[in-house]
Amino acid sequence: MLEVADLSSGYGAAPALWGVSLAIGDGELVCVVGPNGAGKTTLINTVAGVNPIRGGTIALDGRDLTHLPPHRFCDEGIALVPEGRRLFVGMTVRENLEIGSYRRGARAARARSLEQVCALFPVVRDLLDRTAGTLSGGQQQMVAIGRALMARPRLLLLDEPSLGLAPLIVVAMFDAIREINESGTAVLLVEQNVAMALDIAHRAYVLDEGRVVAQGSPRALAAEPALRRAYLGVGAEPPSVPP
């Protein structure tokens, strides 16, 4: 469904992405891993429309998004869970979720979407009237994912959803991501937690210095000794990938 071809992007004089090509199929869960500064966040923000495109193309289900203004990406079916969550901290949880369903195509289904988010994260139901800035990190991450789901995306972009969370909450977060994906939403996941990301992904890309250096099934990538040493954590055990 998503076709990224030869994408270049970045701020100032130094581009952070150099001709990245990447594809996501319908209902697929694809993860992008790589060291710090590899351009993972730039990639996901560019696909979300937040970062300007310097070269190459982005297409979703055959529709070219390359020249759309940033606020039009959401209506094409893309929703972003940004790095560091970036909730509207002065607004209530309910208002944050309502902004998620701001786009015209999602407004009619607002009540149903809210029910679905509360079913996925039951904690959120009790937090609706709290100011988003007063929530814990894990709660904020749930609201950030919920906000993106309120847009009823066909492609969900997740940037470091496990960042700064306690291990138990990370497990719950990955379970939720798997659940979202199994309900039919395609997912592009950027993660530092390589083992867990490869564990739930159908396919993976390895990004380094703004270029794709490897791609394939998580199992194949994890079995590659050179890749494991260079990008997936020195001496790390191969992640348990279900057959």
Binding site: V50, P70, H71, C74, M91, E95
Partner: peptide
């Protein structure tokens, strides 16, 4: 709500349409 959200974090509000 869109005005308040855009005042807090413009690019993210824009990402939501």
């Amino acid at each position: 709500r869109a005005l308040r959200a855009a005042a807090e974090d413009g690019p993210i509000a824009e990402a939501f349409g």
